[in-house]
């Protein structure tokens, strides 16, 4: 089944790190689809493996990793590509905006030159053309004044501005897919607002890239996402349209997670996120779940409800409804 407009399709992706002789499964059988022009927000707690998914897509994973499954982009499995073809895809087809602007920007190069780098590298621009394009991109992101900022070095910029510079670097190569990893980390609400504005501008651009927004900041995701995917302990447990998700999410974990937000009830989820090295058997949320029952000792299937997906036995009863079910590995 091929959804229309799907640009990136992750099928049965599993990633394990080898630490000494131990093998830690960080991602377990992840299935996800990213559609053209859509913002898919991948949410989850720290340690749930969401950042690993981002770097797996562009294959920036450390060498002690084993990876299986498929990541299909334009009919090709990215996991089969050799280094050279992958390098051509990074930046111009799929761009990644890392989470730590302080270490990801070169302190000795002007922002404008860093943004233009991908154009010189991939598209054969001259430095001058690249510089001018960089200024235009900053302007598109709502940076004011763009030419002044382009001349700055990273240490002269605020946290929010650095994050926007990284975004500009991300979209400079006109990618089809933009992966943004934890953009709001350590930003205050005013900066978040400015960053949100930039991201909205990217979303409304002509030929805007599909955005995979990886974040633990649900309030930020709410303002931007079209679809929300929830990751828990290395598994995707829910994929829901954003409006539905923030009003009445499907998975018990999602319900509790939303309730913990400061703008809602600030009620913590009981128990703690399991260590990904030793996930519980059956449903991984079972031990913290208020609806837990005997059936949860078995791993739940991925059920579909109104086009949304949820990995929870509570939704078993809809097995025979018109939606039917889709098993994870189909």
């Amino acid at each position: 089944m091929h959804a229309i407009g799907t640009i990136l399709r992750i099928k049965g992706l599993s990633v394990s790190f080898l630490v000494g002789r131990k093998r830690i499964d960080v991602l377990d059988n992840v299935n996800l689809e990213l559609r053209k022009g859509e913002v898919l927000s991948l949410v989850g707690e720290s340690g749930s493996g969401k950042s690993v998914l981002g770097i797996s897509i562009i294959r920036l994973i450390p060498s002690n990793t084993s990876i299986s499954g498929e990541i299909i982009y334009k009919g090709k499995n990215l996991l089969d590509l050799d280094k050279d073809s992958m390098r051509k895809i990074r930046g111009r087809e799929i761009a990644w905006v890392p989470q730590n602007p302080d270490t990801m920007l070169n302190p000795t190069i002007r922002i404008g030159d860093q943004i233009g780098e991908v154009l010189v590298e991939h598209y054969g621009f001259t430095r001058k053309e690249a510089w001018e394009t960089a200024i235009r991109i900053l302007e598109d992101l709502g940076v004011n004044p763009p030419d002044e900022r382009a001349k700055n070095y990273p240490h002269q910029l605020s946290g929010g501005m650095k994050q926007r510079a990284l975004l500009a670097m991300g979209i400079a190569g006109k990618p089809n897919v933009l992966i943004v990893d934890e953009p709001t980390k350590g930003l205050d609400p005013i900066m978040k607002e400015i960053l949100l504005e930039s991201l909205k501008r990217i979303k409304n651009m002509k030929d805007s890239p599909a955005i995979l927004l990886i974040t633990h900041d649900l309030e930020f995701a709410e303002k931007l996402a079209d679809t929300v995917a929830v990751m828990y302990c290395g598994q995707i447990i829910e994929v829901t349209k954003a409006r539905r998700f923030f009003n009445s999410p499907l998975h018990p974990y999602s319900k509790l997670l939303l309730r913990a937000l400061p703008s809602r009830e600030l009620i913590p989820i009981p128990g703690k996120h399991p260590n990904i090295a030793k996930p519980p058997s059956g449903c991984r949320f079972r031990e913290r779940c208020p609806y837990s029952k005997e059936k949860c000792m078995n791993e739940p299937l991925m059920f579909t409800l109104d086009g949304n997906k949820v990995k929870c036995w509570l939704y078993e009863h809809i097995r025979n409804s018109s939606d039917g079910i889709i098993k994870d590995n189909e």
Binding site: E45, S46, K185, G186, H216, L218, L256, L257, A260, L261, P262, L266, I267, P268, I269, H273
Partner: peptide, 14 residues
């Protein structure tokens, strides 16, 4: 709690 996850934040604040 600004660097913590939502649930942990709620926990610590309480």
């Amino acid at each position: 709690t600004s660097m913590l996850d939502a649930s942990t934040q709620a926990d610590i604040l309480r």
